[in-house]
């Protein structure tokens, strides 16, 4: 525990001295905030919480990139093996990745929240306790997923490529950038298997419907179980040496981290309410909107259709493994 904390402090300092990191973890999310809340809401205050949910989700999902890259670079450059001589375990090293991500992301979330309320005149705070729990679990889960990628790739370059692929999936197949109800039906079915979806929908719930943590327990539980599996697997697969290669079974182990979301996805597909609540939250935002905005936003939701009970289409077999 003590070693994790020491490592956390040092790694945070190193991250803060890294311009690229600062840009992606602070400047970039704020640009998104101004874009979404400033431009897309078109001065319509009631759309602010909805947009804020997206911006927060993007910020939280950013921890996925975060310090897993730092860890891979450390391994590649032979920095990790110096730590290996000292009494430092893989667990402490991994825990410090998550903790430093959390502590570095939290201020950004706080700034976004404050700006939304005071600069963009969001009417209410939402269920703050719910927001806090979801943000915390979200960061931990996405940072753990980053660690999984770090554990099955050999070079920083490889990590970048895999991260890009998964990141695009998180962004475009989940409702994080476009509202879920506006997406084509097959993407909606697929999105039910993505951790990102539950993060976004959960945030919409606590920010718009003001529900508490209990109401989003399924989302929270899946995030927590996913994080626990991802952490355990990356500890198992941890490599200190630049030349040690990924064992063949590793990719299977890594894929096991998404089990909770496969289960949740199957359940949601059959009995779920996520798509309907997402639509409700979306519609309530749209209906409160000023007429000119309403016209724009109404264009797309073609999915007033009941949630599909069919198994996800063939496309979903492309699920990231």
């Amino acid at each position: 525990m003590r070693h994790s904390w020491t490592l956390t402090k040092v790694r945070m300092r190193l991250a803060l001295r890294n311009r690229a990191f600062l840009f992606f973890s602070l400047v970039f999310p704020l640009v998104f905030l101004f874009l979404f809340l400033g431009l897309f809401t078109r001065g319509n205050v009631s759309a602010v919480p909805y947009m804020l949910a997206s911006v927060l989700a993007l910020t939280i999902m950013g921890s996925f990139w975060g310090l897993s890259m730092q860890l891979v670079t450390f391994r590649e450059q032979g920095i990790l093996r110096r730590f290996r001589i000292a009494p430092v375990g893989a667990g402490a090293m991994l825990a410090s990745s998550i903790a430093s991500n959390y502590l570095l992301t939290l201020p950004t979330v706080f700034i976004e929240f404050t700006l939304a309320r005071h600069l963009f005149h969001m009417r209410e705070w939402g269920n703050l306790w719910g927001v806090f729990i979801l943000v915390t679990l979200g960061i931990i889960t996405f940072a753990s997923l980053g660690l999984i990628v770090a554990s099955v790739t050999n070079t920083a370059q490889e990590t970048q490529v895999i991260n890009q692929l998964l990141w695009s999936a998180f962004l475009f197949l989940s409702g994080a950038t476009l509202p879920l109800p506006m997406l084509p039906g097959w993407i909606q079915s697929f999105a039910l298997f993505m951790p990102a979806t539950y993060l976004v929908v959960g945030l919409e719930r606590v920010l718009i419907a003001h529900v508490g943590a209990y109401a989003i327990r399924a989302e929270l539980l899946s995030l927590a179980v996913c994080a626990a599996i991802a952490f355990a697997v990356s500890q198992q697969l941890f490599r200190w040496e630049p030349e040690s290669k990924v064992p063949r079974s590793a990719k299977l182990w890594a894929a096991s981290a998404i089990i909770p979301f496969v289960l949740l996805g199957i359940w949601e597909t059959s009995y779920g309410h996520v798509r309907s609540t997402a639509t409700t939250d979306f519609m309530s935002t749209v209906q409160q909107a000023a007429p000119r905005t309403r016209g724009r936003l109404r264009m797309m939701p073609e999915s007033d259709a009941p949630p599909s009970t069919a198994p996800p289409d063939a496309d979903s077999s492309d699920a990231p493994k």
Partner: peptide, 21 residues
């Protein structure tokens, strides 16, 4: 060959490693 992060300060590196023992 010892490798440490480029942006770690001398004192930080030493104190960090000392704290592990």
């Amino acid at each position: 060959s010892t490798a440490l992060p480029d942006k770690i300060r001398v004192n930080e590196a030493l104190t960090m490693f000392a704290s592990f023992y």
